[in-house]
Design a protein around this nucleic acid. Sequence first.
DNA 1: CCCTGATTCGC
DNA 2: GCGAATCAGG
Length: 190
Amino acid sequence: MSWTDDRVEVLKKMWGEGKSASQIAKELGGVTRNAVIGKVHRLGLSNRSGGASPAKAATAAPKAKPAAKPKAPEKPKAAAPAPESKPAAPVHKPIGRPKLIVTAGQPLPPQPSANEISPEALASVREVEKKAKRLSVMELTERTCKWPVGDPATEDFWFCGLPSQAGKPYCEAHVGVAFQPMSARRDRRR
DNA sequence: CCCTGATTCGC
DNA sequence: GCGAATCAGG
């Protein structure tokens, strides 16, 4: 496959719409997301701006020193908020309501401070339990939060089931309370 | 270990 | 110019 005029057009369009490189690649077919990204860069529209920014990134970067880490300029500020939305939530229907869940009403974003289980974390967990998908054991997959809720000895037991990022057994909120210690974790060599 | 884009470099 | 391999991050 080659970058014909109309294929480039599709690329430009979709990239402008904020589609991911893999999505574009899938749409076009015959190319990988790497190809798409490569093309995007060669076209000089790596910066997802319709043309506002000159994006004249002085890529005069010498390829002699691998030590150089100029880092991408990153998006400064997009006036157009990404309409991107993943309403993949099929809306669950509570078949059996387990008990009453009292809500404090104060979400309070996690605030790293104490190394103990912070009240914020606890609040966060309870908050999450409200939104939990309440999966049974068999409904759990590799990418669902396996945080148990309730008493296994009763019917009042289910797993969180919210999407876990990857590798981790829990969703973000539960990871937060599951792993308190450890903070140094930098660099990862292959 | 799913995904994202960014960069390099042989072709 | 192309894009796989790699890198760096979420």
